[in-house]
Design a protein around this nucleic acid. Structure first.
Lengths: 340, 340
DNA sequence: CATTCGCTTGACAGCGCTGTGAAACGTCTC
DNA sequence: GAGACGTTTCACAGCGCTGTCAAGCGAATG
C-alpha cells in the first residue's frame, strides 16, 4: 500500500514517469510488465525498482482500451442469497481469482427474458470478457437465444436445448436416486414436493422421480408445487394425505418445513414417513432427524463454468455441456416401511 | 440486442461512425449521451437515431480513461456463502443497480490483513470508484488501517475504531435483548454459545450478553466457543452442563445444532431449556421448535453501505458510523422457567 | 576490417472517448 | 443595418497504454 503520510501527493505516477526515472522509454516499461523475458535483466531490474519507488499502478482502463481485454468476467444470476447460486458464484469467483480474473455481478430484478438481457447488457457495457449465467429458469433459456453472437457466454443449470456451452448438476439422476432409495426401503410409492413451475431443476427432479415410479409401475401422485421456501414446505405438508409414507422434497428447505408439518400432525419421521431432500446444505445433517438428501456439488459446477468460459474466451473448443453427478447422502430421515 | 443474422459484421461502431451517420461531430454525440439537454432536440433525435441504427455501444474503457470514473464499485467480502454476507452483498448490488453502478467482488482467501489488502488491490487495479468491505473480523480492522488514503472505502460490520465510514447491525443491542428476554422468563442465568474468536459480531454479542448478566448480578458462565456452524453448535451442546436452562446461541445455525444435541440428551426445548438464536435466517421459523431469535436487517445494512460509499465518492460529508437496530423475534424456543 | 545477424530498445501512432476554447449561427437591440 | 449576445456546434488535444516497425548495439562471420 502507498505510504499514508506522504505530502499532498502530486498525482498517481503513470508509465512515462516510471520510464523517466528508470531512464528508458515507456514501451520498455510496458514490456517489463507484460513480457519480462523480452527485456534484458539489468534493464528489467531498473524498471522494477522505479515501479516500486513511485508506487506505480498500471491504469487498467488504458490497457483495456488498446487491448480490448478487460480481465473481468460477468455473472448474471438470480437471487444470490439462495444456497445454490451463492455457492456457485463463490466457486466461480475463486476459480476466477486463481486465473487473475475479476468477477462482476448483475443480479436479476425479475425472472423473465428482458431481465436477463438487461443484466447481460449492463455487464457488456463495462466490457467484460465473457459472461456466466446462473438462472435455472425457462425464461433464461428464452433470453439466451437472443444474445449477441460475439460474446462468450456460459450457462449454468439451464435447460438442455441451450445453444451455448453449459454445465449443471444432473437433476434427473439425483431425483432418480432419491426415489429409488425410497422405493428400495419398501415404500409403495413416493410423493413429491416440487420447486416452482418453470424452474429447470424443478422439472428435472419431477422427471426423474416420475420416471422411476413409472418404470416400477407405481402409482404416480400429483406433485405438490412449492416455491423452494421452508414456508411452502410447511404449508404443503399440512395438506398431505394420511396414507403418504415417503416424500421426496424438491430441496432441503422445503423438507424442513415439511418436517414441522408432519410433526404437528403427529407423524414421526422416519418411523411413519420417510423424507428425502435435495441440495445437502450444510445444515441438513443437523435437521431433526438428520436429513437424507441429494448432494449437489456446486463448487464443481462453478469451476466447470469458469473453465468453459475461459475456453470460449480464448477461442478453444470445449464440451458443449458438462453434467455433474449428484450424490445421495443417506442419513436418518428415511427408514424401511413398514418398520421391521 | 444486436441483430443475430447480420453479415460477418465489420466491427463494432464507434462514436465517430455515429457522428458521421448523423452528420455531426463526435463531440455532439458524446453530449447527446451525457448531457442531452445541451443539444438541440432535432440534432439529438438525429444522433439517437444513428445510435440505434448502428447498434452503437459506448466503450466504457475509453470513457473511464478520460473521466477517471468507472461506475464500478468493489466489494471485498469473506465467504459470500454465509447468510449475512450474502444478504448484505445482495442488497448492495440492488442499491448499486438502481444508481447505475456495477459491483465487482473479491472474496477473501484467508482471514488476515494481507488478504484484505490483496482484495482491495485487485479491485483497485480495475479502477473501481470505491470499495465496501464486508469482513467482520479483527484482521480486517488491521487491514483497514493501511488503506490508500485516496480511495473511498466503507466498512460493514467492523469494529468501532475503524476510521472509515461504517455501518453495522448493533450486535450488542441484539445480545442485550436476547439475554433480557431469557431472564425475564425466569431463568437464573443464560449460557452463551459464541462465534469464533476475533469476529467482531461474536465479541459484540458476548459483550451484550455479559453486560446484562453483570447488571442483573447473575452468574456469568464461560462462553462456549463455536465456529458459526450447526456442527459446532451440536458438539458444544453435547457438553452443556445439566443445570443449564437458557442458552443464547451466537447464530441460528449453531442453535440448530444445539437443538439436536439437547434432543439427543433427552432435554426438551423449550420446556427444559430455552434457546435464542441470532440472524433470523428464513428457515428459523421452521426449526423445531420455531426459533426465537434476533433479526438482523441485512438489507438495510447493504443499502446504508452503498449510500455511505456514494457520499464518499461524491465528496459529500456523511455520518461516520451508522448502526442498524436488531429486533427480537419471539417464537417457540423460549418459555417461562420454571414452567407455570 | 567491413558486413551481417540477433537481440534489445525506442519513436510514433492510435485505441475511443471527453474537455476546452473558439467558431458559427441565429436573435435581439439600438 | 451594425453590433452585442446567447446558444449550439465543432476541431483539437490528450487521457495512459500497447503494437509496429525501425534503429542501435555488440558479437559473430567472411
Amino acid at each position: 500500500m502507498t505510504d499514508p503520510d506522504l505530502p499532498p501527493r502530486p498525482k498517481a505516477a503513470v508509465m512515462g514517469d516510471v520510464a523517466d526515472l528508470a531512464g528508458v522509454s515507456a514501451m520498455t516499461v510496458s514490456r517489463v510488465l507484460n513480457s519480462p523475458e523480452k527485456v534484458r535483466p539489468e534493464t528489467r531490474d531498473r524498471v522494477l525498482q522505479a515501479v516500486r519507488a513511485l508506487g506505480y499502478r498500471p491504469n487498467s482502463a488504458a490497457r483495456v482500451l488498446v487491448t480490448g481485454k478487460s480481465g473481468v468476467l460477468g455473472v448474471v444470476s438470480i437471487d444470490t442469497t439462495l444456497y445454490g447460486p451463492a455457492s456457485t458464484l463463490y466457486a466461480i469467483e475463486r476459480a476466477a481469482r486463481e486465473h487473475d480474473y475479476l468477477v462482476s455481478i448483475a443480479s436479476l430484478s425479475a425472472l423473465n427474458r428482458r431481465s436477463i438481457e438487461e443484466g447481460v447488457e449492463r455487464l457488456r457495457q463495462q466490457s467484460v470478457d465473457g459472461i456466466i449465467i446462473i438462472a435455472p429458469h425457462e425464461s433464461a433459456t428464452e433470453g439466451l437465444r437472443h444474445l449477441p453472437p460475439d460474446l462468450p457466454v456460459v450457462d449454468v443449470g439451464g435447460g438442455e436445448d441451450v445453444h451455448v456451452p453449459a454445465t449443471a448438476v444432473d437433476q434427473r439422476a439425483g431425483a432418480v436416486r432419491a426415489t429409488r432409495h425410497l422405493l428400495s426401503l419398501g415404500h409403495r410409492t413416493v410423493w413429491h414436493i416440487s420447486g416452482p413451475p418453470n424452474w429447470i431443476d424443478a422439472s428435472g427432479r419431477i422427471d426423474g422421480w416420475r420416471a422411476v415410479l413409472a418404470a416400477e409401475g407405481r402409482e404416480i401422485p400429483v406433485p405438490l408445487v412449492g416455491d423452494w421456501s421452508a414456508h411452502s414446505g410447511y404449508e404443503l405438508g399440512k395438506r398431505l394425505p394420511l396414507e403418504v409414507t415417503a416424500i421426496f422434497a424438491g430441496n432441503d428447505q422445503m423438507a424442513m418445513g415439511l418436517f414441522r408439518a408432519l410433526r404437528e400432525s403427529g407423524r414421526r419421521v422416519p418411523e411413519d414417513v420417510s423424507v428425502v431432500g435435495f441440495d445437502d446444505m450444510p445444515e441438513a445433517a443437523y435437521f431433526w432427524p438428520p436429513l437424507t438428501t441429494v448432494r449437489q456439488n456446486f463448487g464443481e459446477v462453478g469451476r466447470h463454468a469458469f473453465a468453459l468460459l475461459r475456453d470460449r474466451i480464448s477461442g478453444r473448443e470445449s464440451e458443449r455441456r458438462r453434467l455433474v453427478e449428484p450424490e445421495l447422502v443417506v442419513r436418518e430421515s428415511t427408514a424401511r416401511y413398514p418398520a421391521e
